[in-house]
Every structure is written in C-alpha cells, then in structure tokens.
Design a binder for these strands. Structure first.
Length: 425
RNA sequence: GGAGGGUUGGCAGAGUGGUCGAAUGCGCCGCACUCGAAAUGCGGUAGGGCAGAAAUGCCCUCGCAGGUUCAAAUCCUGCACCCUCCGCCA
C-alpha cells in the first residue's frame, strides 16, 4: 500500500498520480470519495487529540491508586467513572471515522516520473529493437508446427481440463527443463538463489502484494474452502517470504530465481488468444525477484531488464523493449519494462517478459525493512520474468522453424536436450 | 478427520487485576580493562502516533476483535495463526 501519512500531507500529488493511470481508474479520485475521506481524516485527527488528553488524565489519576486508603480509593473510583465512559465513547467515534477514511486507501502505487503518461497500451514506448529477424519463407505459427510433431496437445487437454489448458509433450517438454538449466547457468553467477516456492498463499499475502485491487481478485483462483489463493506469478510467493523481517544492509540486494507453476483465470480475456498455449490457465515460469536498498532500486530495475535481454540474446531471438505507460501499469508497479519477442508465424511481437519495480509499495504492507545503522527503512522490491516457459517455447518454435517443418534447438539449450539438435517428425 | 498445547521485545523466556512497556538470559551498541582480541565489569538497547529545532513530553501497542472494570499482558467471549500426537498420504 501507499504511505498513508504521506498521502494525508500530499493529497494533490497522489490524486494527480492516480489520474495519470487513465480513465479506468477514475473511481479512485471522484470528488465525493476524496472529499469524504478528507473530512473523515480531519475529524479523526481532532478527536484523536481530544482522546489522548482524556487518556492522560485518567492514567495520571490511576497511577497511585493502589497506595490510597480504602475510602480514598472508593472516592477516586467514583470520580473516574464518568471520565472513563467519556473515553470509551470517544474511542468508538474515532474508530468509526477512521474506518471511513481508510476506504480510500486501496490506492495504486505512484508511477515514477520517467514513466510516459498514457491511457492504455497505445501510450507505451518502444525503447529499442534488438536482434536480426531471420528470413523465413511462408512462416507458420507455432501451433501448426507443434501439433504435427505431437509437441502440444490442446484437444486432449480440453477433454481433461477444459479450454485454455495444454499438454506439452516430448522434446518440447524436455525443452522446458533445458530452459530452466540455461537460466540457472546464466543467472546463478549473478547472485540469485534458486527457489521453488509454495504456489498457494494466504489471503493476507495476496492482498499485501497488491494483487487483489483494481479488479485483480477476479483474475485469481481463490480456494475459499482453505482460504488460499493460487499464485498468478511466484512473485506473490517470494515477496511474503521475508515478511516482518529486517535485512542487514550488507545482505542487499537479495536476489531469488524462482520456479513455479502460475495460475490465471483469464476472466477478462474471453475470445482473446483462445488458441494454443499463449494464454492458458496454467503455465510454468522462472521469475527473478530482488529486495534492494531504496536508492538502489532503479539500478536493480535496469539490472533485471539486462538479465532478461541477456537470456533472449543467448537464444538468438529478436525482441524489442517496451516501457509501459502509466495507464498500462499493474496496480503495485511504479515502472514496468516489457520484452516482446518477434513471432514470425504471427507476424508480430508478443509479450514474453515483464520487469517491474514496486518501490516500497509491497514492502510497506509486508513490513520488510533494512537496518541502516539503527534506523530502519523499507526495502524496495522488484520482479522480472526470466522465462515464462510457454511463451518462450512459442518464440523458439516460430523463430527456429525450418522449411521442412522441423524445429532447430537453440545451441545454448542443446546441452540439456539428451543429444537432440533438432525436433523433427 | 480425532485429541491436545501454544502465541509476550531481535531471539529465548518470566509475568494471573494497579508501582508492568514488561524480570532474567542471549544477541546487539557504547565505555572501561588490553598492543589487539577473548573473558570480565559498567551503561544502553521494542514499535508506532502526536507536539517540539532539540532535549524531552504525552498517547497507543503483550496474535486479532469485542466485553467486564475506575484500572487488563493478566478475567470473559469470538476469531486467526502456529505447533505436537494419532489416522490418511506422494
């Protein structure tokens, strides 16, 4: 969440920042809501002060009560009764008004100043295009290539699980674990710790990560019987891992490379990308996650992006780097870079990676701090995709397709493919 | 699924109605001793809010929420979480 104290002082700043996120968030800053909150917070302040004075009075009168004689004590108790009732009354009032003003604090993170302003993805900025597109005559899309080779089976998956599920088979399934090996080889020397996290997390943690706001709840699988959420990305499991902890300064940056299955309802995307494995309810993903000093988070953000680019360059697949505009940012994100790879079979770029800084938005809720010579400060938290396996496989298939319909395996993956260099019928 | 135990400061752990925001130990910080370190001794050391330039002062917080009381870590009610044993289980 945002800093409520700071919000209270700089309402205008926050409202302007929220407005930058575009029309779809206008419910945040509509006048009545803001006005109601402002008034409530002022009342709370006044009453709180009043309450504290009364409490001080009561505490003082109670301080030496046990030293009094029986009669004195009796007298004192009678005197204190009305004061005590007054206090109780005020406490209730403060709570009432406080709950009113809290309503507004499901507020998104404030975008960084360098993030371009825009209503939706049309405002996104292409920073650079990297890599050379291979010349492919009559390129096919990945599904037309994969199904004849029996690498992806959508039909049986839909019989078993319904739409938006897939069986990934044979060499393509092997390639998933080749990617895991390749990512480890590239990233572990950069100080990442490999982790396989829980994929079911408690409600409080899903909330703290900021994914239940702004329609996020609708996108998650919620196991209400057990009060657990299935993660949509392992970021949601890695952040809370250090909940209520205080890092030593020298322990930062703390970097994790996490492998997990991810679950998404895709509730808002009916009819979109319905074929194949591009958009499915379940996929595996390798995710990078960093805890950093506040002043180092921008640097770390560039680092995560650099790691993503390194991985794609190693696969020799052309991509472009996108800086998302304010309207396209996720709820907890202050800045996001996407990587989109070239998909020759679809004659377009598709998103395969995303790297975000959430600054102190998540760490505030999770209470994750760093000890700076006695002073404790909230850490910054960042996340970035290493490989979203499904989409990575798509990119590899389409970019490495051969005229005969076979698929060349990228050299960096070959060591992990039981001797295979090409996938063919 | 059945039975039981627990939740107190960075950690361990005392505390069953008032002088308890909380003994003691460990850890950490400072000082002394030392060439230096260890050991030892002395002192300090929870978080948040409000006021203040600061010193400091006041308020809140002993899992959470309600209740009893002049007064709650302590009594009552509900909830959450953690753990142990039995059963089942990759």
């Amino acid at each position: 969440m945002i800093d409520i104290k700071d919000f209270d002082k700089n309402r205008v700043k926050y409202i302007e920042a929220a407005k930058k996120r575009g029309k779809k968030f206008s419910f945040l800053f509509n006048e009545p809501a803001v006005k109601k909150d402002t008034i409530a917070s002022q009342i709370v302040k006044t009453k709180q002060r009043e309450l504290e004075l009364l409490q001080a009075k009561r505490n003082a009168a109670n301080k030496n009560i046990s030293a009094l004689t029986f009669d004195e004590r009796k007298k004192r108790i009678v005197e204190l009764k009305p004061l005590s009732e007054q206090i109780k009354h005020l406490e209730h009032e403060v709570k009432l008004y406080a709950s009113e003003s809290q309503d507004v604090f499901a507020w998104p993170n404030t975008p960084k100043d360098d993030v371009p302003v825009g209503d939706d993805e049309s405002g996104n900025l292409t920073l650079r295009e990297v890599g050379k597109k291979k010349k492919i005559d009559n390129p096919k899309d990945y599904l037309s290539l994969a199904e004849p080779l029996n690498l992806i089976d959508m039909k049986r998956a839909s019989q078993v699980s319904g739409s938006r599920f897939a069986y990934i088979l044979g060499p393509l399934a092997q390639m998933e674990f080749a990617l895991v090996q390749y990512a480890q080889k590239t990233l572990l020397k950069e100080g990442f710790t490999m982790v396989v996290p829980p994929v079911m997390i408690k409600e409080e943690n899903m909330a703290a990560m900021g994914y239940l706001n702004g329609g996020g709840e609708n996108e998650t699988y919620h196991l209400t019987k057990d009060k657990l959420y299935l993660v949509g990305t392992s970021e949601q499991s890695i952040g809370p891992m250090h909940r209520d902890e205080i890092f030593k300064e020298e322990d930062l940056p703390k970097r994790y490379l996490s492998f997990s299955t991810c679950f998404r309802r895709e509730a808002g995307s009916y009819g979109k990308d319905t074929k194949g494995i591009l958009r499915v309810h379940q996929f595996d993903k390798l995710e990078m996650f960093s805890f950093t000093l506040p002043e180092k988070s921008d640097e770390e953000h560039e680092f995560l992006l650099a790691m993503e680019e390194k991985l794609w360059q190693g696969l020799d697949i052309p991509y472009r780097v996108i800086k998302l505009c304010t309207g396209d940012l996720g709820w907890p994100s202050a800045r996001t870079y996407d990587i989109e790879t070239w998909m020759p079979g679809q004659n377009t770029y598709r998103e395969v990676c995303s790297a975000s800084t959430t600054t102190d938005y998540q760490s505030r809720d999770l209470n994750i701090k760093v000890d700076r010579g006695g002073k404790k400060e909230l850490v910054h938290m960042l996340n970035g995709t290493a490989f979203a396996i499904g989409r990575t496989l798509i990119a590899i298939i389409e970019n490495n397709q051969q005229p005969d319909g076979s698929i060349a395996i990228p050299p960096v993956l070959q060591p992990y493919m039981t001797g295979l260099k090409v996938i063919k019928a």
